[in-house]
Design a protein around this nucleic acid. Structure first.
Length: 252
DNA sequence: ACATCCCGCCAGGCG
DNA sequence: CGCCTGGCGGGATGT
């Protein structure tokens, strides 16, 4: 009756050691494969868990991530509406708009987490928003954790969760892990950038130059701020030294 | 030694 | 009160 057992389906008797998912990733992928062709579908959680060999606890993680990016919606205790991956981009766009990420004076500190309790869906949002906020398709998970945890002391927890989230997103082909340890890359199709960056034909050359310069400028500032905030104290110290020595505006 | 991920305890919520 | 949910982070495993 516990939360963890596999709901025995057919492999009846001799299951000395219960071990649902031989592989978490496999479960996720077969789930996707099976469901994403047939949109708008109501399903039973119990059913999903047993059909795709999920530990119940893990399924909650997947569903939380999926729900937060619009792939599905929990309807009741045991029923789930499957919406599909086509809803991911619209959901992300809505998020970005709501957060006003592209406002020039947007402060990316808004993304860091103050609450003591870190929910998967919240974290998923912040993580994905960061790509747009920094206007780059790759992010280092550790840096990300450091940044998001600057207003609380949950670095380890956030890191652990980010590993989980990225694991799920990777299994779902939304991100890719690069060779560089800790670095994840958002797939192009899910990367939301500011449309305004694609120039207005009507603007004068000057205005145009200024404009795009500003745009680039403030993304660059955010990135610098992000990496600075994310350094160890030692690194910060050296950065300062170098800045004084060479009077160059904050390298790296 | 560090990066990554597994695992399941247990508190809080809900019916 | 029992079951569902999911935050949490120790620690095993991988490289």
């Amino acid at each position: 009756m516990l939360a963890e057992p596999k709901s025995a389906n057919s492999p009846d008797i001799s299951e000395s050691i219960v071990q649902p998912s031989d592989n978490f990733k496999t479960s996720i992928q077969s789930l996707i494969q099976c469901l994403d062709c047939q949109c708008e579908n109501v399903l039973s959680l119990q059913r999903i868990a047993s059909q795709f060999n999920f530990y119940k606890r893990r399924l909650y993680d997947v569903i939380n991530v999926y729900e937060s990016i619009g792939i599905c919606k929990k309807l009741s205790v045991d029923s789930l509406l499957w919406i599909g991956f086509s809803n991911v981009l619209p959901t992300l766009e809505r998020l970005v708009r709501k957060e006003r990420i592209f406002e020039k004076d947007y402060n990316i500190d808004n993304l860091s987490i103050e609450e003591t309790s870190i929910t998967i869906s919240n974290l998923t949002h912040k993580f994905l928003l960061l790509f747009s906020a920094l206007h780059q398709t790759s992010i280092d998970i550790k840096q990300c954790s450091k940044f998001l945890s600057k207003k609380n002391d949950k670095f380890k927890t956030i890191l652990c969760k980010l590993y989980q989230i990225t694991y799920i997103l990777e299994s779902s082909n939304i991100i890719v892990k690069s060779q560089k340890p800790g670095e994840v890359i958002l797939n192009k199709e899910y990367f939301i950038e500011n449309q305004k960056i694609y120039i207005h034909p009507l603007l004068s050359i000057d205005a145009l130059l200024n404009n795009s310069e500003n745009e680039i400028d403030f993304y660059e500032k955010r990135r610098k701020y992000f990496s600075y905030e994310t350094m160890s104290e030692k690194q910060k110290y050296f950065t300062m030294l170098c800045r004084e020595t060479f009077s160059s505006p904050m390298i790296l």
